[in-house]
Design a protein around this nucleic acid. Structure first.
Lengths: 284, 284
DNA sequence: TTGGGTAATGTAATTTTATATCAGAAGTCA
DNA sequence: TGACTTCTGATATAAAATTACATTACCCAA
């Protein structure tokens, strides 16, 4: 809870002197955070230890720590939080909400992402003979994105939208092949089957999906994360963003693992592509 | 300006030792605000006065004052700053950097997004006879995403990756048609031509692109934003995320504008889709 | 009331933390 | 190289916060 509110709400629980301190702070919080304990004590007409005790009562470590908390609560604006779009939101309002919710989701995704798994995935990818990216529905665009990225690394990349093609591709997979399956819920039946098929053929199966989902259990290496998704009315968005960024992380890990010479090469390839374009611009 | 960003942006202006301090703070701002000057100095492997000088260089009165400012900037919701991935980053480190940079970019995009244009775009989209989404390269996946979204609204949606198909489609466009062009730089020649063609045929041309770019000038309604993109070595990512979220904003505006009955309908359609699936899950 | 006990508050000492001063080191340019 | 500037850290000093302990105020039973 906001520290300033806490001061306000606990007003009744303070002792007489502590309340004096609280009142001085509430009267002018900006002054409070820029004062020393001595100054504040004088303003409240109490002793310095009283101010200190007041701070501790609010579960802070002491006066400086209290000031820090207070400063944070005074800082305008709230941290990014998922907020639902309401019926009568203005354009400004729903735009802000959607952007901030997206950011909040990415933050959640990052915190829940299994870094060790990311590292292993990079390991596996760098050693792959071929890499396949499969997703369905909304996740298929993520697979395409992945193809786009890894293709530039000069690695054989496969990417299909079609369930049958995905299946056939996996039936023909071998040891050394890597199959990356992308699914937010990890409950898409056909992808789960594909995971099993690829695994039985000896391919490494990386799943970018939810922890403990059916798909994650079929993968040789689940790269899991949790993304809160409000799919009730609006369309899944947060999970897609998180998947895209995760792919970016894997691609980055890939280039880092390959070492500087590889990256120089990548840069050169990019330069060449630029030159071949009329508008000298590849970033589109 | 946000103090943490200030630290990041002035990195070049600091002296060698001051930069060490900056890096320690950027690595873990939360730790920094809870440390004493001595602890921080030790972490950065510099002397205490150096830390103090560092604080003053950032226009604060001293170390405690700096901590206060930093605390506020952390509370502000964006502890996220774009940071480049370094050669020897650990998986944890580059993962965090990429996620946070993505979030920072989204924030920048939001702030620079022209809300009035968004509102007009929603206006135009709700009245469209058909909507076409065109992008090239990386932006084509954004176009696909848009198609996916608007398709569910029961609006005729067109989407092509191919330049010639895009062109042909635009040649046949009429008044009442809406063409949405997606390009980060707004300097892709073929898209600019397509914009002109569509416009000459009386179609409304919405451009999701950079402000004052050649493409934006050819559009009847540019929806512009600024996204910092480090395309030097790594691949364009931030712009794509921003575009995706922007499409989501437009789609949301669209459903809001269409009113509650439309949304109920949308929900029903979704339910029906769910039922028709074995795994009862559409979110993939 | 009044005296014992408890909680609240303040004084003074101590510890911690931050800043100022200055000297030496490192870098820069003629 | 040498004069100059800039940067950095050791030490000293000042400021601030915290602790320990003493005092006061308050409450309640006798």
């Amino acid at each position: 809870m906001n520290t300033l509110e806490k001061v306000q709400n606990n007003l009744a629980k303070f002792s007489k002197s502590e309340r004096k301190v609280a009142e001085v702070i509430l009267a002018s919080p900006q002054t409070a955070i820029h004062s020393s304990i001595a100054t504040l004590a004088k303003m409240a007409d109490v002793s310095e230890p009283t101010v200190n005790r007041f701070c501790r009562r609010l579960d802070t470590k002491g006066f400086p720590d209290f000031k820090l908390h207070l400063a944070q609560s005074l800082a305008n604006g709230t941290p990014y939080v998922s907020r639902h779009v309401e019926e009568d939101d203005s354009p400004e309002s729903y735009t802000t909400k959607i952007f901030e919710s997206s950011m909040a989701s990415l933050d959640t995704a990052r915190q829940s992402l299994d870094i060790a798994a990311v590292n292993k995935a990079v390991d596996i990818l760098t050693q792959a003979k071929t890499i396949s990216f499969f997703g369905l529905g909304a996740s298929s665009s993520v697979a395409h994105d992945a193809q786009n990225k890894f293709f530039r690394f000069n690695v054989p990349v496969i990417c299909f939208d079609d369930v049958l093609m995905q299946r056939m591709s996996c039936i023909n997979s071998n040891e050394g092949d890597v199959v990356v399956l992308i699914s937010h819920t990890g409950r898409t039946k056909s992808l789960i089957e594909i995971a099993r098929i690829a695994r039985e053929n000896g391919a490494a199966v990386i799943g970018i999906t939810a922890r403990n989902s059916p798909l994650s259990l079929e993968c040789t290496l689940p790269v899991t994360m949790e993304v809160p998704e409000d799919t009730d009315l609006y369309l899944p968005m947060a999970s897609r963003l998180a998947q895209l960024v995760t792919i970016d992380v894997l691609a980055t890990g890939f280039t880092l693992r390959r070492g500087p010479r590889f990256r120089d090469n990548l840069k050169r390839v990019k330069e060449v592509l630029k030159e071949s374009r009329v508008n000298k611009d590849l970033t589109i």
